[in-house]
Amino acid sequence: MKLVDSYEFLERLRDLIYSLLELRDRAAEEGLEIVPLRRETPLVRYGVVSTLKGGVIMDVTSEEQAGIAEDAGAVGVMVLDKLPYDVRAAGGVARTADLNVVLRVMESVGIPVSAKCRIGHAEEARLLESVGVDLIDESEVLTPVDEKNHIDKWSFRVPFVNGARSLPEALRRVYEGASMMRTKGEAGTGNVAEAVKHMKLVNRDIATLRGYLLSGDYEAVWYYSKENRVPYELALLTARLGRLPVVNFAAGGIATPADAALMMWLGSDGVFVGSGVFKSQDPESRARAIVLATSLYDDPETVVEAQRMVSERAAMVGIDVRTLKPEQLMQVRGE
């Protein structure tokens, strides 16, 4: 089975969900108009995201930082008001970035521009869609506004990326219309440990599901989907593909080229770097080095060269996740 098959499957799934909604609306005679979605189809969204594979998306807070990221060969930038490390330090409520800054970054660089909205904050997402960003991250780094629900991402024309700590969480987001996934890790810590944990958990569940399929045990796939609150069709699709049905990046604590290469070895399609670049003392060379190590992770010479482009003394000071209080953890927001 091929990755493109899953894009087509998910597109049909969207159509099914919407046809059910239309039937419901007709029955209720409410006359509600279903959001028109023909112009930018799901395939376009999965496709745009698929061209990011092997690349690095960097968190930035200004045009200057966005310029550094573009020159370093990043495939995109993520505009924030504060870097995750500073969000953690500042406390309080973290919201979407200043739209004026988002617009200035969009004018200053040619690479895709993403921005974060709060979990469940559909209006922030609509604003970002209107100003024309290329990708929206419904992110646990910002303060969630809805503890129970995520945004209905099928109703948007712009692709969304969501974070996940496990396969069921990832498949729930895909079912809600996410075009791309990433690990949650623990943002703003400069500590890749949680991202490693989340990626391995996802991989193990995929291997388990694939094992059920290869041994013909569909009942176990069914049981898995019931136990873990994921749609059976998506569990089966994942088992058949042997990977997540959408592009999956690593995120949360990546600070060095070696961190990026490690996450690629674990099966990531690419990497988000949050505080790792611009909280370091050597952002320009570190950005270039992480781009190299992500794309050519399986070439030892390149990774050595990349790692030598940065100095460990210039790396951001990390935070041991075990020293964080439960209420300081961002990864538990929105399951």
Binding site: G54, G55, E70, A72, R288, V291, S295
Partner: peptide, 15 residues
């Protein structure tokens, strides 16, 4: 293949 032109160009040059 298609990707991000600036990223592709910088990787092709770097290698």
């Amino acid at each position: 293949p298609g990707g991000e032109p600036t990223a592709l160009a910088s990787l092709v040059r770097a290698r």
